[in-house]
């Protein structure tokens, strides 16, 4: 188990954490890259998935983007964009764009499926109560699909955190640096530390989304009565809206 004691010694050595290329700075870059990428992907794709699910069309597109997206290696996109002219090239934009493209498939597929899985009776009831298409989407479909959407974000988030490491292959920052440097210097503890930190970060992301998933889960079974005080036209009447 000498590798373990070496790893603990590396992690316990303060000088490995400080400085411009220290683990702390790399961790910060890694978190920043991942958060920005996931956020951008979510902002583009969640509304698109909601809308496609709402109108009930484009399912083939939404699901196939998922399949084709998986087929495109992030490493290939990263290298292609690094060789592309500015504003790409050797920049943060290159890394973020690659990670956004990588995060899109799981989020899009889950959002679309989430909206399609909403009980048709709930949607009919909402329409019967005079809700407009927008109100149905906002007040019924979105809250009921929320757990699916969060699941998509969780999948995408964990994958983005793990995949952001390959940014180091094109010379960008993040914890992948520890892995590539540990590899080229034959510094096993450093390499291990990189892997462990990325894994831990991914597990933290997983745990955070697990909490979020619980928070957005519809409180009651479909068909649960709306709470008193809500009005038929209010957007929050939603059957099973989160408490």
């Amino acid at each position: 188990m000498s590798w373990f004691t070496d790893l603990v010694a590396w992690l316990g050595n303060g000088s490995n954490w400080t400085g411009d290329a220290g683990a702390l700075a790399l961790l910060r870059q890694h978190v920043l890259l991942s958060v920005v990428s996931l956020l951008v992907a979510a902002l583009i794709v969640v509304p698109l998935g909601l809308w496609l699910g709402h109108i009930g069309k484009g399912g083939v597109v939404a699901l196939n983007i998922g399949n084709v997206g998986r087929a495109v290696p992030t490493f290939a996109i990263l290298v292609l964009l690094t060789l592309a002219p500015s504003p790409f090239g050797n920049s943060q934009l290159t890394v973020v764009t690659s990670l956004v493209l990588f995060a899109i498939p799981p989020i899009l597929t889950n959002t679309y499926v989430g909206v399609r899985e909403v009980d048709g009776a709930a949607v009919d009831a909402a329409r019967g109560m005079g809700m407009s298409g927008w109100q149905v989407l906002r007040g019924v479909e979105l809250p009921l699909a929320a757990p699916f959407i969060v699941q998509g974000l969780r999948l995408g988030g964990v994958q983005v955190v793990a995949t952001a490491t390959i940014a180091a292959l094109v010379g960008a920052g993040g914890l992948g640096r520890l892995i590539t440097q540990g590899f080229s210097r034959q510094d096993q503890p450093m390499l291990l530390a990189g892997a462990v930190l990325v894994g831990a970060l991914a597990l933290v992301v997983e745990a955070l989304f697990e909490l979020l998933e619980r928070a957005v889960a519809p409180a009651g079974a479909p068909g649960r009565r709306a709470r008193s005080g809500s009005t038929p036209t209010g957007a929050t009447v939603a059957v099973g809206a989160s408490d």
Binding site: V161, T163, T165, I166, I179, T180
Partner: peptide, 8 residues
Amino acid sequence: YTVPSLAL
């Protein structure tokens, strides 16, 4: 799944 491929 959380272990990056590069590290593995």
